[in-house]
Simulated assay, not measured.
Amino acid sequence: MSPEARRERVFHALEGIYSRDGLDGITMVAIAAEAKMSKRTLYGLFSDRDQLVHEYMQWVRADFVRPLSDREKEYPLRTRLVRLLAPSEDERGGLPLALLRQVIVKPPQPVDCVYGRIQQHLETNRELVQAELDRAVERGEVKIENTREAALLLETMVRPSILEPLVGIESFPSAAELRRRFDFGLAVFLQGIGAVEEAPH
């Protein structure tokens, strides 16, 4: 089995443990047992639980923003933004939210390191969106004076508020509701910036 396949097995094990035992059940011993591998193999992939959780969050980030291939970068703006930002059909459950809530409610030590990692994820996402808006301006697809501000606005329009699930309200939208919001938000954004609307792919 390749190292990448092993890592995915560990991430799925992490989600399984959380759904059954909550955050308190997430230990390296439990993860190794759930992933059906030795602790030595697990520690060969991740130096400790913090690194494992950090890399899990990077893996989950692909559900929210997916970098485009060189071929995809040639598509029209609407198609590029859909490929980059459309919500995933995968149901991740509550583990990513539980981890974010843990950082906010009971920050582990050192706090700066954890917040820095979350900020790094957010900034990477915004840079990818801004890069596509910059590409659209360069190609004459749209006229945007400040692509950074436009990227932040787009992110707000196509994503649900994270505040409610973080403070404990469990009514997070379904995959279908997320997709409806995304499609509507993207259509309003593209109309607002004067982009030529192309047929959805």
Rank of each mutant, 00 (worst) to 15 (best):
Met57Tyr: 07
Met37Ser: 04
Leu122Trp: 07
Gly16Met: 03
Leu122Asn: 05
Arg181Ser: 14
Leu81Ile: 03
Val158Gly: 03
Gly116Val: 05
Arg101Thr: 12
Ala195Cys: 00
Asn146Leu: 13
Asp63Thr: 11
Pro110Cys: 09
Ile31Met: 10
Glu149Tyr: 15
Leu45Glu: 13
Glu15Ala: 09
Leu99Ser: 02
Thr124Gly: 08
Ala30Ile: 08
Leu42Gly: 08
Pro67Val: 03
Pro173Ser: 09
Phe184Val: 06
Tyr56Gly: 03
Trp59Glu: 05
Val137His: 01
Thr124Gln: 11
Arg180Ser: 07
Ile31Thr: 08
Arg180Asn: 11
Leu85Trp: 00
Ile118Gln: 06
Ala175Glu: 09
Arg6Ile: 01
Arg159His: 01
Ile31Val: 14
Arg179Phe: 06
Pro108Thr: 11
Ile118Phe: 10
Leu45Ser: 08
Asp70Pro: 14
Ala187Cys: 10
Gln130Ala: 05
Asp134Cys: 03
Glu198Cys: 06
Leu84Gln: 03
Ala195Gly: 03
Arg180Gly: 00
Ser88His: 09
Arg9Pro: 01
Gly93Pro: 04
Cys113Tyr: 14
Glu149Cys: 15
Ala136Thr: 02
Ser38Met: 05
Asp63Gly: 11
Pro76Met: 00
Ile144Thr: 02
Asp183His: 14
Glu177Leu: 09
Glu197His: 09
Gly194Lys: 07
Val137Met: 00
Thr27Asp: 06
His201Leu: 13
Phe184Ala: 12
Leu23Phe: 07
Ala35Thr: 09
Ala98Trp: 04
Arg49Thr: 06
Arg80Trp: 01
Ile26Tyr: 03
Trp59Val: 03
Ala131Leu: 12
Ile169Thr: 11
Leu186Ile: 04
Pro173Cys: 05
Val10Tyr: 05
Thr27Ala: 06
Gln109Thr: 15
Thr79Gly: 07
Asp70Ser: 12
Asn146His: 08
His12Thr: 15
Ile104Ala: 14
Arg135Ser: 06
Pro165Ser: 05
Val111Gln: 07
Gln119Thr: 06
Leu190Tyr: 00
Leu163Phe: 15
Thr147Phe: 09
Val142Phe: 05
Tyr18Asn: 04
Val105Lys: 15
Val167Gly: 09
Arg159Ala: 04
Gly16Asp: 06
Met28Phe: 00
Arg66Ser: 10
Glu132Gln: 06
Thr156Cys: 08
Ala195Phe: 01
Ile169Cys: 12
Arg66Asn: 11
Ser174Tyr: 11
Val105Arg: 14
Asp134His: 02
Glu4Val: 12
Leu85Ser: 06
Lys39Gly: 15
Leu152Lys: 13
Asn125Ile: 12
Met28Pro: 03
Glu74Leu: 07
Ala187Ile: 04
Leu153Glu: 08
